[in-house]
Design a protein around this nucleic acid. Structure first.
Length: 243
DNA sequence: AAACCTATCAACCGCAACAAT
DNA sequence: TATTGTTGCGGTTGATAGGTT
């Protein structure tokens, strides 16, 4: 069954890129108080970044990914924690209907919440809540409202036939399968903030964060400076994220 | 009190995206 | 342009707390 995966792992051990850490000498599982304190102290002193070298520098027997995850999901001082409010639940449902399982994007709109926290909350609470209301959490439509088995997707403008004067809600014209959603997304070039000429910016600096894409330039969440949003003609949602 | 079941959530894993070279 | 290294995301797992029988 898992032979391919095993082969991949074997290959990984023998050739190609090195693993993210020396697994034989790293701790796994729950973090101890002392490990937490070391990680917090190190990040307070040196800031976030370079997760790969952080464990050694901080004197931790953990891999960089583990440190990053622990910091982001648990130790960060700006985390809200505690139960989700009804308003947060509603917002998560709305954002999920628009973005799907893009937990990091959803988390970006909920200050103090992490993608992992929201994902867990979705899977344990919201999914069930929606199902109990008769709503399919995957499609956000009534569970018994199944689409026809043969669906032809056309990007042509639908002919609007005014039959007997009956009018469809405008949402149906925008998105026939999803009357409640308007998925016509617009992307435009935002204001260029950085005084440096574009060629002096790194690629990362030129990518637009979600904060700026939402018109929140200069917010404390903003991690980008400038824009190159459609590099190679490709729009990457990763480039639109904020943390 | 013990055994079993269920829910929760922290942590891990694999992989894709991106930057640097 | 190709290769390599790093980061971050989303799916999944596993430990354990709490509830039920």
């Amino acid at each position: 069954m898992h032979c391919n995966k095993e082969r991949e792992r074997e290959r990984g051990r023998n050739m190609g890129r090195s693993p993210c850490c020396e697994k034989a000498h790293t701790n796994k599982g729950a973090w101890t108080k002392e490990e937490d304190e070391r990680l917090i102290a190190h990040i307070r002193a040196h800031g976030e970044g370079c997760w790969r070298s952080l464990p050694k520098a901080a004197g931790l027997l953990r891999c960089g990914k583990s440190c990053r995850l622990r910091w982001i999901n648990y130790l960060r001082p700006d985390l809200k924690r505690g139960n989700f409010t009804e308003e947060e639940d509603e917002l998560i449902v709305k954002l999920h209907s628009l973005l799907g399982n893009k937990w990091s994007l959803i988390a970006a709109r909920l200050p103090g919440r992490t993608d992992n926290e929201i994902k867990n909350h979705w899977n344990t609470h919201i999914r069930r809540k929606l199902l109990s209301r008769g709503v399919d959490p995957a499609t956000h439509r009534p569970v018994n409202d199944r689409p026809p088995s043969n669906i032809t997707i056309s990007f042509e403008r639908r002919e609007e036939k005014a039959v007997g004067g009956s009018e469809e809600p405008s949402g149906w014209r925008q998105h026939p399968q999803r009357p409640d959603l308007n998925l016509e997304l617009c992307i435009s070039l935002p204001f260029q903030q950085d005084p440096r000429p574009p060629h002096e910016l790194t690629k990362r600096e030129k990518s637009l964060c979600f904060s700026c894409s939402s018109g929140l330039q200069n917010s404390k969440e903003c991690k980008c400076r400038g824009f190159s949003g459609l590099g190679n003609g490709k729009l990457s949602y990763r480039g639109l994220k904020m943390k």
